[in-house]
Amino acid sequence: MNSTLVHHIVRFFIFLLLQVIVLNRIDLNFGSFNYAHIFIYAVPIFLLPLNTPRPLTICLGFFSGLFIDFFFDSPGIHASALTATAFVRKYILQLLEPIEGYKVDGAINFKNMRMPWLLGYVALLLLFHFSWYFSVEAFSFVYFKEILLRIISSFIVSYILIFLILIIYNPKH
């Protein structure tokens, strides 16, 4: 149990630092196409154990989002998106619940979950996260087309990278 907790804390820090130190410096501009951004900092929230208390999930979402915000110099935007993502995590889990239910120990990894489930789960949460984030970032639905373009292009890039990381790192807990 103790090692699980440490594992999760370390994972949070690794992903947050990876985001702010490495990925923030990667510029994905193709000429005038500058709509793609890589955001992977939401992954530790996705991978929290199934039996994590919801208030804790939401608090973690808020504070790690705020942490990211300090580096992006955009107070509140990432925090808002990640809080919302942490809030809907339970509903997505309920939506994707297999007929026989989840395993009791509740870790989300390749051992417990089948690959298609994990693909769908991450995709739904990430899509929600990006929709919320880019809507709040634009702060107005006047730029609807631009928001949509950002959501889709960022989603594709981040989704591929997240799965590469997950496959390489293959979390146990």
């Binding site: 919801r54 208030p55 999930t57 939401i58 608090c59 979402g61 808020f62 915000d69 955009s74 107070p75 509140g76 935007i77 925090a79 808002s80 809080t83 919302a84 942490a86 809030f87 339970k90 709040v136 702060f139």
Partner: peptide, 17 residues
Amino acid sequence: GPFFLFLFFQITCFWLI
């Protein structure tokens, strides 16, 4: 509780933003 927490954080975020 989770919903109120969510609401509280969102309001905080809105204020920050």
